[in-house]
Nucleic acid binder design. Sequence first.
DNA 1: ATTTCAAAACTGGTTAACCAGTTTTACAGT
DNA 2: ACTGTAAAACTGGTTAACCAGTTTTGAAAT
Lengths: 233, 233
Amino acid sequence: MKLEVLTKNENQEVQNSIIKGIRDLINYKNLEPGDKLPSERMLSEKFKVSRSNVREAIQKLEFYGLLKSRPQSGTFVANIGVIALNGMIEDILRLEEPDFKSLVETRILLELKTVRLAALRRTEEDLEQIKEALNAYEKKVINGEDAVQEDLLFHLAIAKASGNSTMNTFMLIITPEIITNFEKYHVCDKGLAQEGIKEHQKIFDAILKQDPKLAKEKMKAHFKALYQYCYNI
Amino acid sequence: MKLEVLTKNENQEVQNSIIKGIRDLINYKNLEPGDKLPSERMLSEKFKVSRSNVREAIQKLEFYGLLKSRPQSGTFVANIGVIALNGMIEDILRLEEPDFKSLVETRILLELKTVRLAALRRTEEDLEQIKEALNAYEKKVINGEDAVQEDLLFHLAIAKASGNSTMNTFMLIITPEIITNFEKYHVCDKGLAQEGIKEHQKIFDAILKQDPKLAKEKMKAHFKALYQYCYNI
DNA sequence: ATTTCAAAACTGGTTAACCAGTTTTACAGT
DNA sequence: ACTGTAAAACTGGTTAACCAGTTTTGAAAT
């Protein structure tokens, strides 16, 4: 028997076909929320795929909160109702890779919110960490070096200070892709970076003063160039 | 040698210690972005853990965009700079489980944005799917049945119509947790659901008319009760 | 008919051997 | 010394056997 190594796309298709199989089990085999899924071994046999493929598919559905594995016991369907399960699985199957415009749009949305929340909720420790990130950014820019990383770390420090762990996680998810694209398209040239220092300082001051409205305003100003760039692609 | 099954928390700690190990490799062993990580076998030996544990930790860092595995070749450090890598790994290690308040806060933020974008960008097919979800919700509520799932599917249909795949993904991530908590705390009782039909209809009409401002307004009104609930916990 | 409880079957997780590409190595030919 | 190339070493991914808890089962005891 000849074995082949699958490309990432082929593997994605295998995973999706397993997810479809699990969806069909829920739909046509009376598998209700809360019930136990057939064991990984049975699923791998039924779908003619390896057990590791089954495990990966289960992990993906677990990430989206649709399944829950319990060691030495079984994998269980989340208790969110069969209709929601179906709708969500359908959506997950059709999810496409995020484009850069989506990322920037989402980033701006998150940042304008986290900076307000940070102004309202920041602790003294948060302030210190934001200040530290600001200083690192400033130093790099003054030396004429590329400071995309320090820029993003400043924004991540604000997200952390927002006290909202969900938004913090989401910011972390999009940040590497943002950095990669910024460096690829040279979004931040030296002139923008010089301006950036002042803008960052103003954002920091607003958070320090606990003025959420001002903080949001200054963040909006900071993103003005980015906005323009994004809508001119 | 006695083996024990690890609880989820213990496993989390194992994973975090591997992530710390990888961080140290980057910091102290001249492992620069773009370089190849030591092989999974070497890491599992070095950190005295199983290869599957190493693979899981790598997958987690891959999810956050910090590593990239290439079959039959190696795992590579993302090209986002050593400073960003360090900052992000630190943040990932300290990430906490999201609380319900964070989830609701994030949901409202996303929904007020996606509904605006949906009003601007919705296709005819989007409209049909939103209408379908609206009808399903209506039917359930009129029959006096619990309609939390249909409610959320209506909102997911709007997120899909926003044309922003990142926001759509984020909505999917938070939805199951939202459903679970809603059902647990009985956030939507029958009276709210009756009101919900009218509110959903108004949101749909605004999207149909391609009026983003109105759509956001109606969505805000829809969340008014939720707002109150959330800040009274 | 009901309850008890130990043995058997089954579970997700772990391990180690294996697979087939990729990369490095080292030697043969010039 | 340099180049070409084939073999060896190494890679992430896959497989199958194994581990120790969990669940089911079924016969014995009541």
